[in-house]
């Protein structure tokens, strides 16, 4: 009887301390929930460079700063372009709402005014990149169905291979996505986007992943549109988490000050 208790104790301890054993029991939806709710700090600030490359290897670079802040689980996200000069000062603000719709505002210095823009045009390219507005939004977990296809390694990281299919009433340009999700950090390190008839449309890759202030951070990412062979790379610099930005700092009225 005593031995049984000892074995039970050891067995329980193994279960508790073995992350792998625990995560292996996650349901596909649990994995999606972990991705959605992974710790990315209460806010962050970063500088970034976006590089657009077309099929003829012509390149265009754009530098921008990004600020993100979370309040009551909803995010505000601000992107302000620093270069090239022709779009310098252009600011794009996204504010999540309770129904998971977003308010989007664009400040154009030349127009001297902030314009409310349509957020439901999710399939539109963001500043002519391979990222669409949908790619840049967070997606509520309940709007998709999930299937765990496999576990594989990507860049030597153990990953869940999770298929997400939008539910009938979910507005999405994609028929499904297949994500490689790092099992420890729940960072999506590789993602394939499919259109109807399972046609592969785009590929997203995390090319460099660092842990900064204990938060796994995608430092270099790429998105490629397969059909056009057009690629977009984004490199993050100087990211700082949990700074003193407040939700009030990111408002449409303040866009001209960034």
């Amino acid at each position: 009887m005593k031995w049984r208790k000892i074995f039970f104790f050891i067995f329980s301890a193994i279960l508790i301390f073995s992350v792998k054993s625990f995560t292996a029991d996650l349901s596909p939806k649990d994995i999606a929930l972990n991705v959605f709710h992974r710790d990315v700090g209460k806010n962050s600030e970063a500088e970034a460079r976006m590089l657009l490359i077309d099929k003829n290897n012509r390149k265009k670079a754009r530098d921008f700063s990004q600020k993100r802040v979370k309040k009551n689980r909803l995010e505000k996200n601000l992107i302000v372009f620093r270069s090239p000069a022709e779009i310098e000062g252009t600011a794009f603000l996204t504010i999540e709402k309770k129904d998971w719709e977003t308010d989007q505002f664009l400040y154009l210095p030349a127009l001297k005014r902030t314009r409310r823009i349509v957020s439901s045009q999710k399939d539109q390219k963001f500043v002519n990149s391979d990222f669409t507005y949908e790619d840049m939004e967070r997606h509520p977990v309940d709007n998709y169905s999930y299937k765990l296809l496999d576990t594989k390694k990507f860049n030597n990281l153990d990953c869940y291979v999770l298929e997400s299919t939008p539910l009938k009433n979910t507005d999405s340009q994609y028929s499904k996505t297949v994500s490689y999700i790092h099992q420890d950090s729940f960072v999506t390190v590789y993602k394939k986007f499919y259109l109807k008839k399972n046609k592969l449309f785009k590929e997203y890759k995390v090319l460099a992943l660092e842990t900064i202030q204990n938060i796994p951070t995608e430092i270099v990412v790429s998105m490629e549109t397969i059909k056009t062979n057009h690629k977009t790379f984004i490199k993050i610099d100087n990211i700082k988490y949990n700074t003193n930005i407040s939700p009030e700092d990111l408002s449409r009225e303040k866009l001209k000050f960034y």
Partner: peptide
Amino acid sequence: SELHYKTND
């Protein structure tokens, strides 16, 4: 900064 990985991809 802890580097998980970086590719030359």
